[in-house]
Write a protein that binds this DNA or RNA. Structure first.
Lengths: 130, 130
DNA sequence: AATCACTATATACATAATGTATATAGTAGG
DNA sequence: CCTACTATATACATTATGTATATAGTGATT
């Protein structure tokens, strides 16, 4: 039997659908970026370098290019091999705007759930009054 | 070429990992419930009866039973066939508490992203000042 | 008792998002 | 040439979810 509690210990399993993609669109909104470099910037969105999956990042960027949200080209680096640098497209910017709306809905759904949880748990546990 | 905007029109594709499961745990927290009946109650969590997937609901309940979060038994109905009625377990309640913490983290990550989006978009679009 | 509408549950198949592990390759320094 | 580092890519597996369909009991109607 697997340890059920264990899944709450590693933060990796607590992803939100496409959240990484939205963060990348926002990072690329006003400046270009490449895979490895974006990893460091993602810290500002709650991703820790350990739990951030390099494979997932690269795969996501390629997928976004396939969808026309970003374009890419190879650029020389002053240290190390060439980098595939991504630039956001107009479609990518529009896509980001849509995602922000979705995230606002998600947020309000979560807020509503938490309110209902607090209400119910208080009602249940305040039998202290006995 | 598929219409990229289309995915934003149908609300079905905007799920949040395991959100349904958490809602079910909360609904079952203080009273038992069965599949069909729970569907109506889920409206309070932002699920519309149309976009709520009956298969997903039943499958989720069975999975939760397999994980020991709920138990079930068959109960007679005053109208229609028997119902499989679910009851939350202690483990299920503990699990819910953990999920609430995760949802609070999700919420703050989303809030942070929205703040950064607003900041960046204002900076970009306020070139009106020219 | 046959049919039908309704309630209720379950499962097979497919897809999407993500994680794990590994492969490939250029660069710079010794 | 060997090694450490930077950088990108891909194969395979798992998880969560959607779509479609199957199964079956109940009660009313014919």
């Amino acid at each position: 039997m697997k340890d059920k509690q264990a899944i709450f210990c590693n933060d990796k399993s607590h992803h939100m659908e496409r959240f990484l993609e939205v963060c990348l669109l926002l990072l690329l909104y006003d400046e270009i970026g490449y895979g490895y470099g974006l990893i460091e910037q993602l810290v500002n969105f709650g991703f820790s370098p350990e739990d951030l999956n390099v494979s997932t990042l690269y795969r996501t960027l390629r997928k976004m290019e396939g969808e026309g949200l970003v374009t890419s080209l190879w650029e020389e680096s002053d240290q190390g091999p060439k980098r595939r640098v991504y630039e956001i497209t107009l479609e990518g910017k529009e896509n980001l705007d849509q995602w922000i709306k979705i995230l606002k809905m998600r947020k309000s759904k979560i807020e509503n759930l938490i309110v209902q949880y607090d209400k119910k748990i208080v009602d249940t546990t305040s039998d202290l009054s006995d």
